[in-house]
Write a protein that binds this DNA or RNA. Structure first.
Length: 223
DNA sequence: TACTGATCATTC
DNA sequence: GAATGATCAGTA
């Protein structure tokens, strides 16, 4: 039984609020999906379960999870200190000049314009089925956050345009970084080089640093 | 312990 | 291969 897509943001928020405090086991039971024994072989399972519970479109296309209301869904793994345990994947990095746009038209900005964050307990000491879902909230970047994202994006994008991709590593970017995003280190995709556009390289993704998502979390907790 | 680079599953 | 969903695991 598929849950219909939410028609409004309020409807989505209500559904997400109903998940708060529930364990992953409870939600999996409700949706009649099995809990994986080993998370290593089910890395995206929690995200997929949340999509299932909330009626996300559930495609592998580069569009928002809730395309009718233009909201992106992100789960946020939280450790015992209440901090994000991992960085947050945003989207793949365009590596050819013709795929690169301005910040205003970038996939990063489009994806992060409206996000439903769902904190999920993610301490290794808690077995996967017993981990609980937290209080979800909808977020848009405030002017400071947008400026930080934009500055990092423009710096990294300029480097790609100049053919300096090989020089980029995860140390660049205060809040937004670029890291490999591939099946393995041997994966290849086309990329532009300083000579033109004939190079191949490992596919990359944009990620939000945990310090950034922690600030988002704090801004939205207790209000 | 935090962070970076590597990896896992699935769909189209 | 490229998009989605992410977490793993070695090392600084």
């Amino acid at each position: 039984m598929q849950i219909p897509a939410p028609r409004t943001e309020a409807e989505l928020l209500n559904r997400a609020a109903a998940l708060a405090g529930k364990s992953l086991w409870q939600l999996a039971e409700t949706r009649q999906v099995p809990v994986p024994a080993r998370q290593k072989q089910a890395k995206g399972w929690i995200g997929a379960l949340m999509e299932n519970c909330l009626g996300a479109t559930g495609s592998s296309l580069p569009v928002p999870d809730f395309r009718e209301i233009q909201v992106e869904l992100k789960t946020l793994p939280i450790n015992h200190l209440g901090k994000p345990r991992e960085s947050t994947y945003v989207c793949t990095v365009p590596l050819t000049r013709e795929a690169i746009t301005s910040w205003d038209h970038s996939v990063v900005r489009l994806k992060l314009t409206r996000v439903l964050w769902i904190p999920v307990e993610a301490d290794p000491s808690i077995p996967l089925p017993r981990r609980r879902v937290g209080n979800a909230f909808i977020w848009s970047p405030d002017p400071d956050e947008e400026q930080q994202l934009r500055a990092d994006w423009e710096e990294l994008t300029e480097m790609i345009c100049l053919g300096e991709l090989d020089y980029i590593n995860a140390r660049f970017g205060e809040v937004l970084q670029i890291r490999p995003k591939a099946a393995n280190a041997r994966a290849r995709t086309r990329a532009c080089t300083d000579e033109g556009e004939w190079g191949t390289t490992v596919p990359r993704g944009f990620y939000l640093r945990p310090t950034f998502t922690y600030r988002i979390l704090q801004r939205h907790s207790g209000c």
